[in-house]
Amino acid sequence: MPRRFLQRYMPKPETLRRQRSLRFMSRLIADPGLWILSRRSVANAFSVGLFSAMLPIPFQMVVAAFGAWLLRCNLPLSVGLVWITNPLTMPLIFYGNYRLGAWLMQTPAREAPERVSTRWIAEQMADLLPVLAVGSVASAIIAGILGNVVIRLIWRWQVSRSWKRRNLQRRIRRGQLEK
């Protein structure tokens, strides 16, 4: 299923190795085990990528690359999934993480003033950071597990659908199925 679809959009290792900015990672990029597209490697890459995306930290892509290396899963997918939290979606996702953390810690969520400023955020950071951290870790774990399970189910469904389609085509070719 998804193997052909994913291969169509994935970058080639040689292309990445030639890029000047990625030369320091050339050994990691050259590892063929991190480019395999199997059900396990793709599902684990989704776990790593989604987990890293939910964390409010700088260098999420480095965390995802290290996680892909540790779990021996697909490197480009895990790093690419970090971009779920891009500059447009980041405020909404981290606000949701903050609300989840407030709910888990059973503390009232702070209401934002009419005009949010960096000064207000800096003043509130001591109170906001622990709640955001708890909510982010919780949503990272949930997103990682859900991503893994959903990808495994989709992969399995696609493979069984493909088997059924091939079996039907074989039966038609053999003339066993009446039209």
Rank of each mutant, 00 (worst) to 15 (best):
1 M>A: 15
2 P>W: 09
2 P>H: 15
3 R>T: 14
7 Q>E: 15
11 P>C: 10
12 K>N: 13
13 P>Y: 06
14 E>Q: 15
18 R>T: 11
19 Q>L: 14
20 R>F: 13
20 R>N: 13
21 S>G: 05
21 S>W: 11
23 R>W: 07
24 F>A: 15
24 F>W: 14
26 S>V: 11
27 R>H: 08
28 L>K: 02
28 L>R: 12
28 L>T: 03
28 L>F: 03
28 L>S: 04
29 I>G: 08
31 D>E: 01
31 D>S: 09
31 D>M: 00
38 S>L: 02
39 R>P: 06
40 R>G: 09
40 R>N: 02
40 R>L: 10
42 V>G: 07
42 V>I: 02
42 V>D: 06
43 A>F: 08
44 N>G: 14
44 N>L: 03
45 A>E: 02
45 A>W: 01
45 A>P: 10
46 F>H: 06
47 S>I: 02
47 S>L: 01
47 S>D: 05
49 G>L: 03
50 L>C: 00
51 F>G: 04
51 F>Y: 01
52 S>A: 13
54 M>E: 11
56 P>S: 09
58 P>T: 13
58 P>Q: 14
59 F>L: 14
64 A>D: 08
65 A>E: 04
65 A>T: 09
65 A>W: 02
68 A>F: 00
68 A>V: 07
69 W>M: 09
69 W>D: 11
71 L>C: 08
72 R>K: 04
72 R>Q: 05
75 L>P: 03
75 L>Y: 09
76 P>F: 09
80 G>K: 00
81 L>A: 00
81 L>V: 01
84 I>D: 05
88 L>F: 11
88 L>W: 14
89 T>D: 06
90 M>D: 11
90 M>C: 07
91 P>G: 01
91 P>K: 00
91 P>A: 10
92 L>G: 14
97 N>G: 04
97 N>V: 08
98 Y>D: 04
98 Y>R: 08
98 Y>G: 02
100 L>K: 04
101 G>Q: 04
104 L>H: 05
104 L>T: 14
106 Q>N: 13
107 T>K: 10
108 P>W: 01
110 R>D: 04
111 E>H: 10
111 E>P: 00
112 A>D: 09
117 S>W: 11
118 T>R: 06
119 R>H: 13
120 W>Q: 12
121 I>Q: 00
121 I>D: 02
123 E>Y: 12
129 L>Y: 13
130 P>A: 09
133 A>K: 01
133 A>W: 00
141 I>W: 06
141 I>M: 01
143 A>Y: 05
143 A>R: 06
144 G>V: 00
145 I>K: 10
145 I>E: 12
145 I>V: 13
146 L>H: 10
148 N>H: 06
149 V>P: 07
150 V>W: 01
150 V>I: 14
151 I>N: 03
153 L>P: 04
155 W>L: 00
155 W>M: 08
156 R>W: 07
157 W>H: 11
158 Q>T: 09
159 V>L: 00
163 W>E: 12
164 K>Y: 03
165 R>V: 06
166 R>M: 10
167 N>G: 15
168 L>M: 07
170 R>K: 08
170 R>S: 10
172 I>H: 05
172 I>P: 07
172 I>G: 15
173 R>H: 12
173 R>D: 15
174 R>N: 11
175 G>T: 06
179 K>Q: 13
179 K>Y: 14
